[in-house]
Design a protein around this nucleic acid. Structure first.
Length: 179
DNA sequence: GGAGTGATGACA
DNA sequence: GTCATCACTCCA
């Protein structure tokens, strides 16, 4: 019996449109390997931050020391601290020079980006690191039956400051089990 | 509804 | 250098 092949997503995949990538990593697995300790859970919620025009994105005010990772190569982790307490985990999308990233907000059994990074023990040490086996944190497609799920879209969370137009855009995607 | 928490970016 | 702000979570 042939061994099932899983795909580890890398640069070429993440270089595509943020919306395409977002739809595909829903249902894929966020995998953390730290020595013998492995945690892998299905990604269930992401938000899209795409381009200089997106007023909700850190990139909207141009490149800075913090957000420069978003302007860099796709398939790298962008991790920053918010409210002095919580690390936010993002994966960079689109080609270098175009600022875009997906905020990974939830996996199975952990809702909320702050709780997710606590569960996975993800700190800013991952900022600017390539998502691959070597760093111990990556995204893997395991071939779940996507027909069992539906993607729900809604406005992003906590970005009312961005103005009505951007705050209302349906850039938050959730994976829901079909009933 | 409101506090905790500290890095970041804007401005001087 | 100062200062307001923040892609959150928990407790009331």
């Amino acid at each position: 019996m042939a061994k099932k092949k899983y795909i580890i997503y890398t640069e070429d995949f993440f270089a595509q449109s943020s919306f395409f990538v977002a739809e595909h990593i829903l249902g894929a697995y966020l995998v953390r390997r730290n020595g013998d300790h492995v945690i892998e859970r299905m990604i269930t919620e992401v938000e899209i931050y795409d381009g200089l025009d997106d007023r909700a994105s850190h990139a909207s005010r141009g490149i800075t020391l913090r957000n420069k990772i978003m302007f860099g190569d796709p398939g790298y982790w962008y991790v920053y601290l918010i409210y002095g307490m919580y690390s936010m985990l993002n994966i960079v999308t689109r080609e270098a020079g175009y600022p875009a990233a997906l905020l990974i907000r939830g996996v199975e059994g952990a809702s909320g980006p702050g709780k997710l990074t606590q569960l996975y023990n993800i700190t800013r040490d991952f900022n600017g690191i390539r998502a691959d086996l070597k760093c111990g944190l990556w995204i893997e497609e395991k071939g779940i039956k996507r027909t069992r799920y539906a993607i729900e879209r809604g406005p992003r969370i906590g970005i009312d400051y961005a103005g009505e137009m951007w705050a209302q855009k349906p850039y938050r995607l959730c994976l829901r089990k079909r009933v």
